[in-house]
Design a protein around this nucleic acid. Structure first.
Length: 399
RNA sequence: GGUGGGAUAGUCAAGUGGCCAACGACGGCAGACUGUAAAUCUGCUCCCUAUGGGUUCAGAGGUUCGACUCCUCUUCCCACCA
């Protein structure tokens, strides 16, 4: 049992520091029923979760399955500083109201994965504010500048003359102090968090805790392009709140190679099952599309439900495999004769009449399934099915 | 506080008086192809009922027949020195 737990916990991990500690925690859980704590920090500035975030959440859920209580830490204090990994972006100061709103949306999304009854939501403002200037100085004395500069981000930025705010130096310290206050047994985070996570260990020792937290790092999930990390700003993400059809389609759009990566990090299928599928694809008995569809289904089901996932699958087949028309199409109405380009803009399927003309010239626009060739075409009264490319549809009623 | 450098389309980045709606790259869109919204190839990529017109190169003025390019001021960013 412990072996299986360790295997599942190890799955997809980039690095584990002090794995023995984790083994001991598991052992005392199975033998004495003792629970332990796993901490993970979240930034209240970004309430829109995407699958990249859920990698971490799923690992937390795995821990919960094996006896952990999750310390879901909201970094409402640290958010005001800005994590150094967040590059140079200056942070907007969030009002308390914003934060509350963000957190609510954050947690409702997170609880699709986490077991709420085994989760404690904690706010670091609570103890960090109480720390005061004296406490802050004491905290800072635990670290030398040379040590701080060892951190990859800092050394790179320092070498390339990119500015580093002194307050940014405080970030790892504060995050580490969170682990002291919470007496965390394990902390998990992304690989980019390594320095901060290790700081927790160092500080726990400095503040006299008997045991230091084990650290578990998850890799950064690649986005749909398979190269860059999944992020909203790069637009290569699958959002947790994406519509079922989008979600399903986006998963299917990833490359066959990337699919295995997603399986490892996002699927709840067992490692054996995945290995079997991999073999099936390799020796040609299993079609890769089939495997990808299964993944798409699993993910869509997780954030919506089985019924909607099934619908999304059918819809996808209909629209893409058989290039038929989707079921739900936005409908618009207008008075009098309209110019085709204008109509496309009005129906929100083209951004400007200039773009519309270009697409018509290239044969990318269809009305009632027929290619439009005349860019000056006028639509007189009647009902039309407008289409741009393969994916954008609209119904227009002209009176 | 001193000195120097910089700000160009979604992003990066060329352009140093007319040839500029502005090279190129990435991204995005469309077409072909495909099991796919992948890969690859091709075209397009400020706006406007358009072989033409309008508005752009941080902002405001100025020089000039003509400015992204020169001058002045303003704002913001960066580096070096203190």
């Amino acid at each position: 049992m412990i072996q299986k737990a360790i295997q599942e916990i190890n799955r997809g991990c980039a690095e584990i520091i002090d794995e023995q500690r984790i083994e001991k925690l598991l052992k005392s859980y199975y033998e004495e029923g003792k629970t332990y704590t796993v901490k993970a920090g979240f930034d209240p500035t970004a309430p829109d979760l995407h699958l990249g975030h859920t990698v971490l959440l799923q690992k937390l859920a795995t821990f919960q399955k094996y006896g952990a209580r999750v310390q879901f830490l909201i970094g409402n204090f640290t958010a005001t500083i800005g994590d150094p990994t967040g590059k140079s972006a200056t942070r907007k100061v969030l009002t308390d109201e914003d934060i509350v709103k963000n957190i609510t949306s954050y947690t409702t999304q997170a609880f699709k994965i986490l077991d709420e009854s085994k989760t404690d939501i904690v706010y670091n403002k609570e103890w960090l504010e109480a720390l005061g200037a004296a406490g802050m100085l004491q905290l800072a004395s635990n670290l030398t500048v040379a040590r701080m500069l060892e951190r990859d981000d800092f050394s790179k930025r320092y070498a390339s003359n990119t500015p580093i705010a002194v307050s940014e130096f405080m970030y790892p310290l504060l995050q580490g102090y969170d682990s002291v206050h919470l007496q965390s047994d394990v902390e998990i985070g992304g690989t980019d968090q390594k320095f901060n996570l290790l700081m927790g260990r160092q500080l726990q020792k400095a503040y006299g805790l008997k045991k230091q937290q084990a650290v578990l790092m998850m890799p950064i999930l690649e986005g749909l392009d398979g190269v860059q990390k999944m992020s909203k700003s790069l637009g290569n993400y699958i959002g947790v709140t994406d519509e079922p059809n989008d979600m399903f389609g986006k998963v299917l759009s990833i490359s066959d190679d990337l699919m295995w990566r997603y399986y490892e990090l996002l699927s709840t299928k067992s490692l054996e099952e995945i290995a079997d599928m991999k073999e099936g694809v390799a020796n040609g008995t299993l079609h890769p599309k089939k495997v990808k569809e299964e993944l798409a289904f699993e993910i869509t089901e997780r954030f919506h439900n089985a019924e909607l996932a099934q619908k999304a699958k059918e819809e996808f087949d209909k629209v893409h495999a058989k290039s038929q028309i989707p079921t739900d199409i936005d409908e618009f109405e207008t008075e009098g004769e309209v110019w085709i380009a204008k109509a496309l803009v009005d129906c929100n399927i083209e951004p400007s009449t200039s773009q519309a003309r270009r697409d018509i010239k290239q044969g990318g626009v269809k009305i009632n399934q027929e290619k439009v060739t005349d860019e000056k075409m006028q639509l007189s009264s009647g009902e039309y099915l407008l289409q741009v490319g393969k994916r954008k549809f609209a119904k227009l009623k002209v009176h």
